[in-house]
Design a protein around this nucleic acid. Structure first.
Length: 461
RNA sequence: UCCCCAGUAGCUCAGUAGGCAGAGCAGAUGGCUGUUAACCAUCGGGUCCGCGGUUCAAGUCCGUGCUGGGGAGCCA
């Protein structure tokens, strides 16, 4: 018996083949008097393979019972199709049902809402749209590694479990091996010295601080892994578990940081356009009619670079009213970011040099003393897709900032030591991988670009 | 967490003025055709999200809870 061949290979065949074997899931069956058409999909591509099953087949009775959703194995000849819709089809000489699907199979041969498909997240990758989403996700994931590999970056596996609530930003998921029914206590409080690590532990919110240590050793590094936020965020762009790409570069300032951010996004979008054309076509057709214009615009045009001070004055001069007032020292609200990227410039932009007062301790203080080398990349439809900064490499300035913000030095002793022993300017950023997926596919809910999304009150599957 | 909207057949939805619960698709059965989300006919299919209230009468009005969605905040 020959080996199974993926449908995408067969659909791109140059010539007929006498004997091929395919395996996949039935999308639809159309019966004639003397034969049946069965369309099967094996996930290798968006398109299905049409199987022609003639009534003369030994098990033709069985063929009539093959239902939508069943897993089947088909062997036969790859021949040019007599019908109009496809170039190739398989003239079956043997069809075996590997796994049946009763009529309660929830996926029908019709359009389903995204909300309904979320309730059957275990089956939704069998639909055209979600199959395409996750093929693109896989391709983009690979493209991230390719991008950094070609630039000489090293991939670092930073820890998922962390011992301190670094950055103090966002609520953390506590990790414990203690008996929650009866935890050990000391002076009325839970005694974490009895816990697995002998101290409090959490899931990481970012690999940045670890990555910095490796940038100051291996030069240019990146991490690509999950991050966890226990924020009670109920929006279409937040998940409790998401993936971040976090490059960190030694001897690099905020401008080099922005250069890399822009190059990364444009390169990844270009990669998707080249390598996922067929799947992207589905999104351009059914999800976002302007998708191709948006994506090609990103690849072809440079991003706007806009200092925060200039962003403020543009917003102050804007003809439309804002709910939140804008002045130096306030953070840009969603409405402001959307105005800048969707109305004023109508393309991606990077805002940089934010006020010190609204940014974390590790961002490098600029010479003006009021701003830090922070940057946010904003794209139409999604908002912030990248947040990054130059890191404060001067130990005295860093300590001063920690004091201002009330962060205990002892918790960051190793971070501070990196500034004492051979400190060097360095910069990095975090790219929200799901937000990139939303940008590339036009899908407007983060829950629909994650295989099994985790959001407040939702961890089924 | 706050504001707004929704919840009716397996799925997508309609349900008028408070008066017997509907369609398309899916499923079953039969027919027809190199078909393309095939087509035609027949049939089966309901805790109208839960609880409480108003009313002779509630899918419909009121209160409340749950679930889902959109927006805001937090951020990637």
């Amino acid at each position: 018996m020959n080996k199974r061949i993926k449908i995408n290979r067969l659909l791109n065949a140059e010539s007929p083949m006498k004997r091929v074997l395919v395996k996949g899931w039935v999308r639809t069956r159309r019966d004639s008097k003397t034969f049946s058409f069965i369309e099967i999909n094996d996930g290798s591509c968006l398109r299905n393979m049409q199987i022609v099953a003639d009534a003369s087949l030994p098990d033709y009775e069985e063929v009539g019972k093959i239902s939508t959703g069943s897993a089947v194995s088909v062997s036969g000849a790859l021949v040019e199709s007599k019908g109009g819709g496809q170039k190739w089809e398989i003239l079956a000489d043997e069809i075996t049902v590997i796994g049946t699907a009763p009529e309660t199979y929830p996926l029908q041969k019709k359009r389903h809402t995204d909300e309904y498909l979320r309730t059957i997240a275990h089956l939704r990758p069998r639909t055209n749209k979600y199959g395409a989403v996750f093929r693109i996700r896989s391709e983009l994931s690979w493209a991230v590694h390719k991008f950094f590999k070609e630039k000489g970056f090293h991939h670092i596996h930073t820890p998922i479990l962390t011992g301190s609530d670094c950055e103090g930003a966002g609520s953390l998921f506590r990790v414990t091996a203690l008996d929650l029914e009866n935890p050990p206590k000391q002076d009325g409080k839970i005694d974490f010295s009895e816990d697995f690590f002998g101290t409090e532990a959490n899931l990481t919110v970012s690999g940045q601080l670890s990555a910095e240590m490796f940038a100051l050793s291996l030069g240019d590094v990146y991490t690509f892994g999950p991050a966890f936020r226990a924020e009670n965020s109920n929006t279409r762009r937040h998940a409790a578990e998401f993936w971040m790409v976090e490059p960190e570069m030694a001897f690099c300032d905020i401008h080099g940081d922005m250069d890399l951010a822009e190059e990364l996004i444009r390169c990844l979008v270009g990669h998707a356009l080249r390598e996922c054309a067929e799947d992207l076509e589905l999104f351009a057709k059914f999800v976002d009619k302007s998708l191709m214009t948006t994506l090609e615009g990103i690849v072809q045009n440079e991003f706007v670079r806009l200092p925060y001070r200039d962003a403020v004055s543009i917003l102050q001069k804007a003809s439309q009213p804002f709910e939140y007032p804008v002045e130096f020292g306030t953070d840009l609200q969603t409405e402001h970011e959307r105005y800048l990227t969707e109305k004023h410039f109508k393309k991606p932009l990077i805002v940089y040099d934010y006020p010190k007062s609204i940014k974390p301790f590790y961002m490098r203080v600029n010479d003006d003393g009021d701003t830090v080398g922070a940057m946010d990349a904003l794209v139409p439809g999604i908002g912030e897709i990248i947040g990054g900064s130059a890191r404060e490499e001067r130990p005295d300035v860093l300590k001063h900032r920690m004091l201002e913000l009330g962060l205990p030095e002892k918790d960051y002793w190793w971070y501070l030591e990196s500034r004492i022993f051979g400190s060097a300017p360095h910069s990095g950023f975090g790219l929200g991988f799901e937000r990139l997926m939303m940008l590339v596919t036009g899908v407007n809910n983060i829950r629909d670009v994650v295989p099994f999304p985790r959001t407040p009150k939702n961890i089924e599957f």
